[in-house]
């Protein structure tokens, strides 16, 4: 599979803070990738680096095999739908569509008009007067109708209600299956978009937490629950990401596949085993990273 995006030890520092911290990731061609992380995890910064809007402090970035910064040959193949995109004063959605139509070679006007109908977007109203959901709809329409070879959606459905979100998933999948391309969606609403994704990349505090094929996620983590004493013993054998204790009962989220002998011990200890959902895994990963950071700060 061709790799479209590759970063090597990329960092973006603002004075003391590293928004992206020594990140090495890859995204392959013609797949829908999920970029997950809490607010402020560095998702937007990473996307801005990948689209040449920011200059990396260190490390290498390659998009379509080249540096994206100031590279018109790369950027013309990319569409970036940014959360909180700034639009010039006085612009209406129609103005944005006009500009996007000129910029994207693959632009499909029929799709754009169809999507304007689907999302009931008032195209002649000043953007300043639009709701958060309508603002998101502009981005979704441009992102889908541009048919760019590489499309980034940064938190694409903020402010959209349940019906509009379903519309977004439907239209994205419809257009993607007819016109395969590489799509990266960032989100912190995880379980809802999980079925759309082929791969999942989780970042936290600008660092890579994990990268998995969605179909392997069942192997990425599982949760075990049982009596506190049983869990105390079992926790010795496995890589514990998160633990919750309620009364005499405990639940732990365990990273990775659990070897058969350990599983046998689990059944001897009468532990209940369940695959962790993507959301569980995500929370567990980011929480444990936070504890580690805190522990380091306290030393």
């Amino acid at each position: 599979m061709t790799t479209v995006i590759q970063t090597r030890n990329v960092s973006k520092r603002y004075k003391a803070v590293a928004a992206v911290d020594d990140l090495s990731i890859e995204f392959e061609e013609h797949r829908i990738h999920g970029l997950l992380g809490r607010n402020g995890a560095g998702k937007t910064t990473l996307m801005q680096l990948l689209t040449g809007q920011l200059f990396a402090t260190s490390g290498q970035i390659s998009v379509f095999g080249e540096e994206p910064v100031e590279n018109a040959d790369v950027l013309r193949r990319v569409c970036f739908i940014q959360e909180g995109q700034v639009y010039p004063d006085g612009f209406t959605p129609e103005h944005v569509l006009t500009v996007a139509r000129g910029i994207h070679a693959g632009w499909d006007e029929e799709t754009a008009r169809y999507l304007v109908d689907v999302f009931e977007l008032p195209t002649d109203r000043k953007i300043k007067k639009l709701s958060r959901g309508q603002l998101s709809a502009i981005g979704i329409i441009v992102g889908i109708a541009s048919r760019a070879e590489l499309t980034f959606f940064d938190e694409p459905y903020l402010g959209l209600d349940a019906v509009a979100r379903k519309n977004f998933y439907d239209e994205l999948l419809r257009d993607f299956s007819e016109h395969p391309r590489t799509i990266v969606i960032s989100s912190h609403h995880i379980d809802e978009i999980a079925p759309l994704l082929e791969t999942v990349t989780v970042i936290d505090s600008g660092k890579l937490m994990m990268r998995h094929e969605v179909e392997d996620l069942a192997d990425a983590a599982s949760s075990f629950s049982g009596t506190r004493a049983a869990i105390d013993e079992f926790a010795e054998y496995v890589d514990v990401l998160e633990r919750t204790d309620v009364g005499g009962l405990s639940t732990i989220v365990v990273r990775g596949t659990v070897p058969r002998p350990v599983l046998e011990r689990a059944s001897e200890l009468k532990l209940e085993r369940q695959p962790a959902s993507l959301q569980d895994l995500f929370v567990a990963l980011t929480e444990s990273a936070r504890h580690e950071r805190r522990a380091r700060q306290n030393v």
């Binding site: 829908i32 998933y169 999948l173 079925p195």
Partner: peptide
């Protein structure tokens, strides 16, 4: 499309 899942899946 029908199940709102990734075509690869």
């Amino acid at each position: 499309k029908h199940l709102r899942i990734n075509p690869a899946t």
